[in-house]
Design a protein around this nucleic acid. Structure first.
Lengths: 63, 63
DNA sequence: ATTGAATGCAATATATATGTTGCATTTGGT
DNA sequence: ACCAAATGCAACATATATATTGCATTCAAT
């Protein structure tokens, strides 16, 4: 259930609300995803990855 | 909206129903995903990728 | 100490992913 | 041509992702 969204976002020095707005989501949704309490949709994951200059594997793949 | 699930599944020579059962989904859901008519959840994408020995980027990332 | 921004958290409402059932169509083998 | 398996498709029901609102908490700056 864990991921690297928070680290990638902080590396960009943007806020949860900034990220949320730029991907068409809400701050709450971003917060829940970062805390691993959500099972987000693929499209939202892709939007987040693109905004943070990462790929799906970078953010959501654990081996 | 497109992806590489169908190609990866056929490379394994398994059916939609086989894939569905092994990831805890239904045949219909797999079919809709393969035809790009769905926005699946991240967890389902991960399950599918693992079953097909692929990563998220392999199946769902287009650059 | 105080203020405001950033985040966490909870309750409720809405949109949509997914399941269920059933039937039609396609496809591969005989 | 025939048959069975695989797939597509549609209607409806259910589960859950996401939005909305509001409030509490943390934390950096003043």
């Amino acid at each position: 259930m864990s991921n690297n969204v928070k680290e990638a976002r902080l590396a960009k020095s943007i806020t949860q609300e900034d990220l949320a707005k730029s991907v068409g989501a809400t701050r709450q949704t971003i917060g829940l995803i970062e805390n691993g309490k959500y099972n987000p949709s693929l499209h939202l994951c892709i939007s987040i990855a693109k905004r943070l200059d990462k790929t799906l594997d970078d953010l959501f793949w654990e081996d």
